[in-house]
Design a protein around this nucleic acid. Structure first.
Lengths: 223, 223, 223, 223
DNA sequence: AATGAATGAGGATTCATTCAT
DNA sequence: GATGAATGAATCCTCATTCAT
């Protein structure tokens, strides 16, 4: 938010009137504003005017880019998740990467790309509005959950075969790997104000619970 | 005009099914109806009329028991959690119960009392509406989370001392024990329609991940 | 309008607030107000608030009786025509009434019940909004036009057989009988302010054009 | 940002099909488009963008030719009627033309120039929007109605003097001659879809009703 | 001149809340 | 206490009009 105002600082409000922009950029600005609003207050409590105001444009302009509030919402939540997925994918397909390290990277990625950004509100949004927007829920299940679990399953299977898992049955319940991520989101979203959660430690502890300790000295290392 | 009111007076008397009830019971009925509505559609999308209709009463009657929609909501979510807590508490204070069994019971209790009832929507409600009702969030942190974590911490410490935990550091991150419960709620709330999650297996696998396998025969047990 | 204010004169505006009425009466009041508004300004230019204000109620109250503006309009125009039809019908079924007299009565009825009341705006409404409300047009064709023409056809046939018509072929074009009525409506609606049209004379002249002059003394009438 | 404007400059130039046209022609195109739109949907329901789209130009361009929607409408309806008038006029001033033939020609002209063209919607437009545009109504009365009636009056007077009229009083109510024209417009506009009206027959029948039958053998024919 | 993105006033509709009965 | 008709503030969305390009 601060950055943005910096960008516009050199022009007064009056000057910014009727400013034409690249449609793609304008669209992106609206989506950003909408996400902020929806994340803050939820779908119903967000007024289109709020979104417009936050995007620095007039009410009507939003409607030049999105036909209605519902579509603004669904296109928003659909579009916001995709980027993360690609990176996760690549973690698996490199077989040289040890599974534990891959999962560790997944958690790191998750912290950096979700927990520490506004994206952390996404789960809340989907959870909150899901029942009213089944298409969104279905999209998330199909595009994010299924794909993520598939990747994890492969990873855990490999780990189990290598004897890395404390509990080899984990390979059959990949959701468990995701559970501390959910916890972290919910905690930081709801309770962080009242009690801090050290997510680094959370994920580290969980990793140590899932995986057997790194063998201090791999086979026949030192005498 | 006079005739009319006479006419109406007759009809009105005839129509008065207006069952008076014990105020406490009526209040409970409203809360139940409200919970169902809020759980289904969220705070904003729920109309007071929906609540009244589901409670089988008239719109105005709700206002005889709750001053406004907001209070109806906050009193609702505050009141709904308490009952669970007591049972959990007792699980810990009996030191004869092995920690693993206590956690197992906690999961069983959670499945029976939350997952398999309408209460499973509670988390969604709190998560969804939390930002608009900080008092609710604060209440849940103070009354449920803090107390629950305290109990778990004791339990895990005892488990660690007994060498029951795969990773003794778990004792310092009791939130982890809660994470599969969150996962289960979120999954059943959002994705169950698209893909079934075997929560029994989830919790069992999780237990086996946290705790070292039950020693087949505690040394020198039988003979 | 004046009459109405007389009715309410004994109560101040403040006193009339939240006045409950017989639903049927309230509905009728709304319809009356709506008709006045629609007739004055057309469908699009009429605001629901105008209707409410003219009915002396609040905006929202209109929606307790009609689901939306469109339905208010269609129910209005559908409901407004029916009463006239009955009377016309009875003109024909009495064979003792000479055709010329029946048509004359039809014109008289039309003047009294349509031209000289607010109903004269009805044609304008239907004509104006017809294309946007095909159901209304269809209704008018089916319920009013078809029935009216059927009656006229019978009447004209009888007249032709009696040798009353200047042009017997008229019996095959009953629409012609209606044409001065249309003219009268259009004139009084649009041009009366600029130039008076004597509708009595219009219909009389038209009658004399359609029908042969009344025989001064039917043969052998008097001694 | 500079790059961007460069990019746009290129594209813009490429896209400029912006055909300049003779202003009069452009104006006429807009009027034609506007008439089609207004006739189809009425004043209020017609969007300026509809008009522009149908004229194949951009929204803003309309405003280069007409200051606002209202003026577009009034200039349109005022301009559209004039052409017909000239022809009608000439029908009367030739005294050699028998009155019946002149009226017959008037009907023929009316069918060809109004009923069978988009102009048939003009009456609907004026009737529908008249109350909102008194200037238009007044214009029509002054320019079309008064002039038309004057012509008809002369014609009918001449016919009456020649003994051509069944009812000589018609000369004093020239509106009657117009009434089947109104009927034809209204019918074809509203009801043609549901029931066909043979307008040729309508006018023929009416002519035969107004005028005495053409004498089979003029002067001194019979024994 | 021509364009069409941007504006914002305006109007339909909803729904929490009130209150006469 | 119970009712539900009535209220009107609030919000979505449209579209006439403007103006930078």
């Amino acid at each position: 938010m601060t950055d943005q105002s910096v960008i516009n600082r050199d022009r007064t409000v009056a000057e910014r009137k009727r400013e034409k922009r690249d449609p793609q950029q304008r669209r992106a600005e609206i989506l950003a504003a909408a996400f902020a609003c929806f994340a803050e207050r939820g779908f119903a409590a967000t007024r289109m005017e709020d979104v417009a105001a936050r995007a620095g444009i007039a009410k009507g302009t939003v409607y030049l880019h999105f036909p209605d509030k519902e579509r603004l919402f669904t296109e928003l939540v659909s579009g916001i998740a995709s980027p993360i997925l690609g990176e996760i994918d690549s973690l698996v397909h490199n077989e040289a990467i040890p599974p534990r390290f891959a999962v560790s990277m997944f958690y790191t990625l998750f912290r950096r790309e979700v927990l520490e950004t506004e994206r952390r509100h996404l789960l809340r949004l989907i959870l909150a509005e899901g029942p009213l927007f089944p298409a969104v829920t279905e999209f998330y299940h199909r595009e994010i959950i299924t794909k993520g679990l598939t990747v994890l399953r492969i990873l855990l299977k490999r780990a189990a075969e290598r004897g890395d898992l404390r509990n080899p049955l984990l390979a059959d319940m990949p959701q468990i790997v995701m559970s501390p991520a959910l916890l972290a989101i919910i905690w930081t979203t709801l309770f962080e104000a009242y009690e801090h959660l050290d997510t680094q430690k959370l994920f580290d502890t969980f990793l140590d619970t899932l995986f057997v300790p790194a063998r201090a000295a791999p086979e026949g290392a030192t005498p």
